[in-house]
Design a protein around this nucleic acid. Structure first.
Lengths: 125, 125
DNA sequence: ACGATATATGAACGTGTGTTCATGTAAGCG
DNA sequence: CGCTTACATGAACACACGTTCATATATCGT
C-alpha cells in the first residue's frame, strides 16, 4: 500500500547499531540530563564575544559596571544585560558599595574554562 | 537648546573610569579579537545539549553517525548537521571506512573543557 | 548496473538571542 | 528635598540557530 515511488524517508539507519558494545559503554557513562542541560547553558552563556571579554576581565580584576563598559567600549546597558545573563548562570557574583556594583568571577572553574579554551584556540592556528 | 525635559540618554557613565589602574592592567592582558572571537564560537558550538552529548560520547568512544543517532535518540540528519558544526570549529575529526564515517574528538582540549565544565555544574547544586 | 544503505546538505520554519532605546530604581550630594 | 550618578530592566527589532523534510552523494552487495 505504499506509494510506489516514495523512497523510504530513511530518517534513521535501518540496523539499530553498528557497534552496540561501544554504544552501551557510552550510554552507561552518559551524564544526567540536568548536568548536560546546565553545562550547555553555561557554554551558551560563554558563547558570546562580549561575555567572554567580560569574563576574562573579571578573571583578572574585580570591576564595576562602568569600568567594564569603558574597557570594552560597549554601552552600559549592554554590559548590564550581559552581567545579568552571567549572574543567572552563577558565573559571576557581585557586591554593592554605595551606588557602585563590583563584579567578580564566582569561582575558579570559570577562569579555568577560559584558560583551557584560550589554550585550545591559540594552539589551533 | 536642548528640550527641557529629556534626560540625557546616559548611555555611558559620565566620568571615564572609576579605577583607571585596574582597567589599564586588564587592558594590557586582554586577548586578541581573533582569540576572543574564536573562543566565543567554540563555546557557542558547545552551548547546545545535543552537541554536548555528542562531544561527551566522542570523548569516550570513536563512533559512527548511525550509532550516535541511536545513542542520543535524535534523527540522523540532526546528528549530521551537528557534526558538521563541530567539524567546522575543529572540535571533532572523522575518518571514513567504506560507507561508515567514524567521528572522534579532535584533541584533548575538548575533553578537558567538558571535564572542567561538568565539574563546575556538578559542584553548583 | 541496480537497489539498498550510510551519510551529507539545502531550504524552510519556528524559536531564541543580543543589542538599543527608553525608562525605572536606588544611593550620594548639595 | 531635588538633582545627579550608577546600575537594572522591559520592549522591540533584526538576526542567528536547531530541527525537520526532502533530496543528493557515495559505497556496498548482488
Amino acid at each position: 500500500m505504499d506509494d510506489k515511488k516514495t523512497r523510504r524517508p530513511a530518517a534513521e539507519c535501518e540496523i539499530d547499531f553498528i557497534d552496540e558494545r561501544k554504544v552501551k559503554r557510552v550510554r552507561r557513562a552518559m551524564k544526567s540530563v540536568e548536568a548536560i542541560t546546565s553545562l550547555a547553558e553555561t557554554f551558551r552563556v560563554l558563547g558570546d564575544p562580549t561575555r567572554i571579554r567580560i569574563a576574562f576581565a573579571l578573571s583578572r580584576e574585580e570591576l564595576c559596571v562602568c569600568d567594564i563598559a569603558n574597557l570594552l567600549g560597549v554601552s552600559q546597558s549592554a554590559v548590564s544585560h550581559s552581567l545579568r545573563t552571567l549572574r543567572q548562570m552563577k558565573l559571576v557574583r557581585f557586591r554593592k558599595e554605595g551606588k557602585i556594583a563590583y563584579y567578580a568571577l564566582d569561582d575558579d572553574h570559570i577562569a579555568e574554562l577560559l584558560e583551557v579554551g584560550f589554550g585550545h584556540v591559540e594552539e589551533k592556528r
